[in-house]
C-alpha cells in the first residue's frame, strides 16, 4: 500500500527508554526516484524512542524530511499497512536481510549492529520508488496455479466436506501465506524481470505482455505451496491436474534448485520446502500418468 504515516508518538503511558545509552541512530536508505533511474544512498538521523520498529523510524524520517547533513529531501517512500505482520506489505532488505519492516524492532537491530540501520528495496522486483517495489508477478503466479477452490457458485449448498483436525493443522500454516515475497527475494532461481511499456503499446497490451513474461519465468515457492494447499483441499483437488500442469510447464517446479533459502526466511515459518517436496512427487506422478495415458 502506498500510504505512509501514522501519528506515531510515544503514548502518555510510555515507560522510560530501554536503551538509555542510545539517543539516536542513523538510517541509510537506498533511494531511487523512479523506475530506470539511478539509485543512491541517503543518510538520516532518527531520535531513539522505546518500542520503535523500522516503520516508526521511517515515519520520523518522513516527518523531518531532511538528511543527516540538514539537506531538505522528499520523504522516503515505502509500503506498509497492518503493522502486525499479517498483510505482507512492508517487505524490504533490512541490514541485508529480507523481512517485514513492522516486526524489525529497533532494539533488536541495535543489538546486532549498534547505531546504524541499512534499508534497501527488494532486489527481485522492479523498484517503483525508493523502498516501494512492484510485486504484481507474485500475485500473477497465484492465477497461474489456479489457487482457488472451484465451487459451483455461492448459493447455499449446505456444509462443506468434513475434514480431520490433522488435515486442518497441515493446511492452516499454508493458508497463512501473506504474499510478502520474502521467499522469492531469497531464492537464487527467482530473478528480476523488469518490463517497460512501449510508447505505442496500450495499457492492456502492456499488461498482457507482462503477464506472459511472468508466466514463463519461475513461479516461486509461495505459489508452489498454494498449489499444494488447494490440491489437498477436498474440492480443490478436483482440478489438481490443471495445477500440476502449471507446475510442470515453463517456469514450473523443475526450476527449483533446492537452495532451501525460502523456508529459512519465511516470516510465517511456512514449511515451504515440504510443500515443494510434496509438489515434486505429485508432478512426477502426474507426468508419468499422462505419459502412460497417451
Amino acid at each position: 500500500m502506498l500510504f505512509d504515516y501514522f501519528g506515531g508518538q510515544c503514548p502518555p503511558y510510555a515507560m522510560s527508554d530501554q536503551h538509555p545509552e542510545i539517543d539516536s541512530f542513523e538510517v541509510r536508505v537506498l533511494r531511487q526516484d523512479a523506475p530506470g533511474e539511478r539509485s543512491r544512498w541517503e543518510r538520516h538521523r532518527v531520535t531513539y524512542e522505546r518500542d520503535m520498529n523500522v516503520i516508526s523510524a521511517l515515519q520520523k524520517i518522513a516527518a523531518q524530511a531532511e538528511t543527516v547533513d540538514g539537506q531538505p529531501v522528499a520523504p522516503v517512500c515505502w509500503d506498509s499497512n497492518c503493522l502486525e505482520e499479517v498483510c505482507g506489505a512492508c517487505t524490504m532488505l533490512i541490514n541485508g536481510r529480507t523481512r517485514q519492516a513492522c516486526t524489525a524492532l529497533i532494539d533488536r537491530l541495535m543489538e546486532d549492529c549498534p547505531g546504524e540501520i541499512e534499508l534497501r528495496p527488494m532486489s527481485k522486483f522492479p523498484v517503483i520508488r525508493d523502498l516501494v517495489v512492484d510485486r504484481t508477478r507474485l500475485f500473477r503466479a497465484l492465477t497461474k496455479v489456479k489457487a482457488w477452490v472451484p465451487v459451483d457458485g455461492y448459493l447455499d449448498r449446505g456444509q462443506g466436506p468434513l475434514r480431520s483436525m490433522e488435515e486442518q493443522q497441515q493446511s492452516y500454516p499454508l493458508s497463512e501465506c501473506m504474499s510478502c515475497g520474502c521467499c522469492l527475494e531469497a531464492c537464487p532461481q527467482y530473478t528480476k524481470i523488469e518490463s517497460t511499456q512501449d510508447e505505442s503499446e496500450s495499457d492492456e497490451d502492456f499488461s498482457a505482455r507482462k503477464s506472459a513474461t511472468y508466466d514463463s519465468a519461475f513461479v516461486g515457492a509461495h505459489a508452489i505451496s498454494q498449489a499444494v494447499l488447494f490440491n489437498t483441499n477436498p474440492i480443490g483437488k478436483f482440478i489438481a491436474g490443471e495445477r500440476l500442469d502449471a507446475l510442470t510447464g515453463p517456469g514450473g517446479i523443475q526450476m527449483c534448485g533446492n537452495a532451501q533459502n525460502c523456508v529459512a526466511v519465511c516470516p510465517k515459518e511456512i514449511p515451504l520446502t515440504t510443500s515443494i517436496a510434496r509438489a515434486g512427487r505429485s508432478t512426477t506422478l502426474h507426468v508419468l500418468k499422462k505419459w502412460f495415458d497417451r
Partner: peptide
C-alpha cells in the same frame, strides 16, 4: 449459518472438532 457453510466450501481452514466438524 449459510455464510459459514459457504466460507467452509471456499476452503477456509476453520479449526475442526475430532469428528471433523467446525
Amino acid at each position: 449459518p449459510k455464510i459459514i457453510d459457504l466460507m467452509d466450501r471456499l476452503g477456509v481452514t476453520f479449526n475442526r472438532t475430532s469428528e471433523g466438524h467446525l
